[in-house]
Amino acid sequence: MITPLPDPEPRLIALPGVYRPQADTRLLAGALAREPLWPGARVVEIGTGTGVLALRAAARGAQVTAVDVAWPAVLAARLNGWRRRLRLRVLHGDFAARTRGSRFDLVLANPPYVPGPDAVLPTGGARRAWEAGPAGRAVIDRICTAAPALLRPGGVLLMVHSGLCGAHETVALLARQGLSAHVTERIRVPWGPVLRSRRAWLREAGLAGDGDEQEELVVVRARYA
């Protein structure tokens, strides 16, 4: 979890427990802005939260599906789409189940990625937005292995996550699925309250050093040939 930055979309509705746009959202938004997107392109956002990235894609004329496991996020994204007069198809549930049989030109993902000592992930509450198991890869790995079934030929996956999870592991796993992948964006941000609260565990797990106070965030871009 990272320290909240000023909301880049201050008029967005964010219901209690919904992940608000932060530094990782901004980083992924920048990658989206540089990605070619044409009217009618099919886009899916995994873990939409407030719907901010889905809305940006819809504003460029894309046909956008947004998925989230949390009902408050689904509601918030629908309300934000209605307020912006942008058409979003917002679905509740697991991304793999809700997208089965559909293929997209662009997949956007800001999955839970904070490593933690508990291998059992929460099934409710705000923690679902960041808790990702001891390696931080519980959802990242699922997205990587699902990518070939999600993407049309030539389609692109843009995914943001912490460097604590291993960007090289993401790139290698995507390559094993037949995608051409590389890191396109990197920034460093101060640790937020969640990482600070588990400093001792992160050191014991070999994920952080004694003096670490910053987290690297990366965007991985993968293209399906």
Rank of each mutant, 00 (worst) to 15 (best):
L37M: 09
A73P: 11
P153K: 01
G163R: 06
A59Y: 04
Y224S: 14
T123S: 14
V114A: 15
A167P: 10
Y224R: 13
A62L: 03
P21G: 02
Y224N: 10
L88E: 10
H161T: 06
R203C: 01
H161C: 13
R83H: 05
G206E: 02
G51P: 03
D7R: 02
V44T: 05
A146F: 04
L108T: 04
L12C: 03
M1L: 14
R89I: 03
L5N: 10
I187A: 10
D24L: 13
R128D: 12
R199L: 03
G93V: 07
R26W: 11
A167N: 08
L106M: 06
G136S: 14
A66H: 10
G155N: 10
V64S: 05
G81K: 01
V69S: 15
L5T: 15
G17Q: 06
G192L: 02
A135W: 08
D105F: 08
P8H: 06
I140E: 11
E45F: 06
G61D: 05
P16M: 04
T99S: 10
E216A: 04
W82Y: 09
R60Y: 02
G133W: 07
P8L: 00
P36E: 08
G51W: 03
P112M: 13
H182Q: 15
G136Y: 13
A119E: 14
W82D: 10
R87L: 15
V160L: 05
T99Y: 00
R34N: 02
T184I: 07
L164M: 09
S180V: 15
V194E: 15
A175E: 15
V189H: 04
G124P: 06
G125N: 11
W38V: 14
D7E: 05
L55S: 05
T145N: 13
A172Y: 11
E213M: 00
N110M: 04
G209F: 01
Y113P: 14
V189A: 00
G51T: 00
R42L: 04
Y224F: 15
A208S: 02
R34K: 08
